[in-house]
Simulated assay, not measured.
Amino acid sequence: MRLSSRAPAVSLAPEHPLASVDGPLRLSDLADEPMVRLDAPPSSHHAMEVCQFAGFAPKIGYRTQNFETARGGRCWCSARNAARHPGG
């Protein structure tokens, strides 16, 4: 039984070039961007796995165990098919 599900998201600063892209982003679009890694299981393991699945190792620019700190970062990738998340 599934209790809940969440849509994949990435938070970008409003001035980031990818923030103005219409439609979904591919995770590979973020391969060269620094990632703010949420260092809390299972999120940290999942983020590394999906980046590896997309064919790259993420560039970890900052690590935190605080969700709000990770959410406020410039780039946070956490899913195979990333989508824009306004207001980062």
Results as ranks from 00 to 15, higher is better:
Met1Trp: 04
Met1Ala: 12
Met1Leu: 10
Leu3Thr: 13
Arg6Lys: 01
Ala7Gln: 14
Pro8Glu: 10
Pro8Thr: 15
Pro8Gln: 10
Val10His: 02
Ser11Gln: 09
Ser11Phe: 11
Leu12Thr: 01
Ala13Ser: 12
Ala13His: 07
Ala13Ile: 06
Ala13Asp: 12
Pro14Cys: 06
Pro14Thr: 14
Pro17Gln: 00
Leu18Gly: 00
Ala19Ile: 02
Ala19Gln: 03
Ser20Arg: 12
Asp22Tyr: 08
Asp22Arg: 13
Gly23Tyr: 02
Pro24Lys: 07
Leu25Lys: 02
Arg26Asp: 11
Arg26Trp: 07
Leu27Val: 04
Leu27Arg: 01
Leu27Thr: 02
Ser28Asp: 05
Ser28Cys: 06
Ser28His: 09
Asp29Lys: 04
Leu30Asp: 00
Ala31Tyr: 00
Ala31Ile: 01
Asp32Trp: 06
Asp32Gln: 14
Glu33Lys: 03
Glu33Arg: 00
Glu33Cys: 06
Met35Phe: 03
Met35Arg: 03
Asp39Ser: 05
Asp39Phe: 08
Ala40Gly: 05
Ala40Ser: 12
Pro41Gly: 06
Ser43Val: 02
Ser43Gln: 07
Ser44His: 06
His45Pro: 03
His45Asn: 11
His46Gln: 08
Met48Ile: 13
Met48Arg: 13
Glu49Pro: 00
Glu49Gly: 06
Cys51Pro: 00
Cys51Arg: 00
Phe53Tyr: 09
Ala54Gly: 07
Gly55Val: 06
Ala57Lys: 12
Pro58Gln: 03
Pro58Trp: 01
Ile60Leu: 04
Gly61Lys: 03
Tyr62Cys: 04
Tyr62Ile: 05
Thr64Gln: 01
Gln65Thr: 10
Gln65Glu: 06
Phe67Gln: 09
Phe67Glu: 08
Phe67Asp: 07
Phe67Ile: 14
Ala70Val: 01
Arg71Gln: 03
Gly72Ala: 15
Gly72Met: 04
Arg74Tyr: 12
Cys75Thr: 02
Trp76Cys: 03
Cys77Ile: 08
Ser78Ala: 03
Ala79Leu: 03
Ala79Trp: 08
Ala79Gly: 15
Arg80Asn: 04
Arg80Cys: 07
Asn81His: 11
Asn81Arg: 11
Ala83Met: 10
Gly87Lys: 05
